[in-house]
Design a protein around this nucleic acid. Structure first.
Lengths: 343, 343
DNA sequence: CCGAAAATTGAAACCGGTTTCAGTTTTGCC
DNA sequence: GGCAAAACTGAAACCGGTTTCAATTTTCGG
């Protein structure tokens, strides 16, 4: 059954035309006499011929692929993002080359090398060193170099002129969250955060302070709780720290849904009722929100349009892009927030 | 800054050797005089040259890529699987081309076409029509045709001779789960399933019946509850159906962790205590298990080794593969199961 | 120092497409 | 029917590597 690869030459020979003509039919660049087209199409059908994408890529000097580099492909935030990117890329006839750096610097380096060999038309970079608040000069120079080869788009703020940054609007999300809680009547609000070295966190912390101050709400240092990571464990750690305080806030924001889920567990275990005794909110609006009891109110993003924007920015370099763009956010109300009760 | 692509010819000219020599240095196929090698390496360094992977692919007729086709890339089961595959592929110097079919037949067709053009060295196919209990002849013939071009491996049972099937050992997982619950003293066990048309479900249902019978436990039809989908909603639907019964089992198996999480919510909402009143178990051992309260005991798989096996099977066709292989399973004990109480 | 074997090397063909360029055919119009 | 313009077509170059093959250089035993 050793099927030899059928080429455009085979098709040409059998259809008694030149390879050039077959190519023209395939690419549709020039019109071809109907009679020949029909004949060629028949032969193509007969052999179920598919043009070799590698050869085409070499000849056209473009290969219809986008490298998608993420920090942790099994994290549900990232998988939502790249599922969205994949769908948009597919719509445009592109394929995503998925690479996972596990947030390790050495992988980031070798992945970029790989990208330079693969010559995808663009690279979408999400997570890892790119998100650092204080950007890493070594990594930046690596990016700058890569930029010479392929267009880069990052799912963060723009690290360099010429690299568009598209990210969730952290500031707006925080403002919206705080205002929402304030609107319910909360004055005492805490924030359990992690990864202060990352840009998104830093931005949210700053915005939290700003909005609280603006609304004239008390800003107590012990209600800003840093925890070790973005996980359920992190949330539980947060709950423990919180429960040691003599006074706890009436509402709590968790860094993301996982942290909030952990907080929830910790608080419920301590006998608190949510939302009667304390309200709780998350960020990202992942499916985690539907799994907890009560279900989590969360600030969400439209992943589909996030992905579409990333891909669009990656493939339309000619367009006039702002250096930085923000994906709009919205609040998905569920059951974990209510007006503060009396205690 | 318009950097023209540096080619092997540019390197050759500058280093005063032939392109062939540069190529030999890059591929390491033949020895090259140390002095020339050094000179060439210098020039390569100088221009930070990376050979064009497309050209190489065309010449070598292999492109070090694997197409990974999944049904829903944002589902945490699939993202665990492909994160594992990516890691193994990367280790071997391969890149994964990620494609998502959204379980839609028309996408499955066009994705396969795409694969034939891209000529990856192999394709790993997980989820979608491939998992159907009663296999779809149209799809099979499509696969058979694709097989002529690239090696296929499926994350399910083998659909055709020559296509290795590697899958979670559904039977063992069910047997293990039932025996575990029986070991705790449960005699009345229910199973909330979904997707009877899929192979894994069918296999688990059959195995459930077999093991229950073997252990001489009561097999009541109303404790086998079919629900609409693999989600939290599906679980809630299951809980509703269950709560209408006049007698409910003392332990319950959910199709996967999401379904079990939904079940948990439904049961807790109805005032039942878990595990005191009813024990609950999930499958897949995803991070969902850690988010619920109580945390879910679940049957898990080693995703890392699952991914490694898939990739290995994809890239080592010469090896003697069994047609079908099963990934071992284990029980991850958490807090949702206990000995049955009296009611 | 000589000759044969071993190690290196370059020219050229090749991988499978696309595209330019220069004919060759057709078409459209008077 | 004749001619210019438009439409089509094929030969050949090219994309950027790898590899075969034959020639050249080195190495080494005697």
């Amino acid at each position: 059954m050793e099927k030899k690869n059928v080429t455009i030459y085979d098709i040409a020979r059998e259809a008694q035309v030149s390879p050039a003509t077959v190519s023209r039919i395939l690419t549709g660049t020039t019109s071809v006499r109907e009679e020949k087209r029909k004949k060629v199409m028949e032969v193509i059908e007969k052999y179920d011929f598919h043009p070799n994408a590698n050869a085409r890529a070499l000849a056209e000097n473009r290969n219809k692929s986008i490298a998608m580099v993420v920090a942790h492909s099994d994290n549900s935030y990232y998988s939502s993002v790249f599922a969205a990117c994949e769908s948009e890329a597919y719509r445009r006839g592109y394929v995503l080359l998925l690479m996972d750096t596990s947030s390790r610097a050495e992988n980031e380096v070798s992945v970029l090398k790989r990208v330079q060999e693969l010559r995808p038309e663009a690279m979408i970079l999400c997570g890892g060193r790119i998100d650092l608040e204080k950007q890493d000069p070594e990594f930046l120079s690596l990016l700058r170099q890569t930029m010479g080869f392929t267009r880069i788009v990052v799912g963060s703020r723009s690290p360099l002129p010429g690299i568009p940054g598209i990210s969730v609007d952290h500031r707006a999300s925080m403002e919206m969250a705080v205002r929402y809680l304030a609107g319910l009547g909360h004055r005492e609000i805490g924030f359990v955060y992690t990864g202060k070295q990352f840009y998104g966190t830093a931005e949210r912390l700053a915005e939290f302070r700003r909005v609280m101050k603006g609304l004239n709400l008390p800003l107590r240092k012990e209600w800003l709780i840093g925890v070790k990571d973005y996980s359920v464990d992190g949330g539980q750690e947060g709950a423990e720290k919180l429960l040691k305080l003599e006074k706890i806030p009436t509402a709590l924001l968790g860094m993301n849904d996982m942290v909030s889920a952990g907080l929830l567990q910790g608080l419920l275990a301590a006998g608190l009722r949510v939302p009667e005794d304390i309200s709780l909110m998350g960020f990202d609006d992942t499916f985690v929100t539907c799994i907890t009891a009560p279900q989590l109110t969360s600030v969400g993003y439209d992943y589909q349009s996030y992905g579409a924007e990333l891909v669009r920015a990656a493939l339309e370099p000619e367009a006039e892009w702002e250096q930085d763009r923000r994906i709009p956010v919205f609040i998905e109300e569920r059951a974990s927030c209510a007006a503060p009760g009396k205690r």
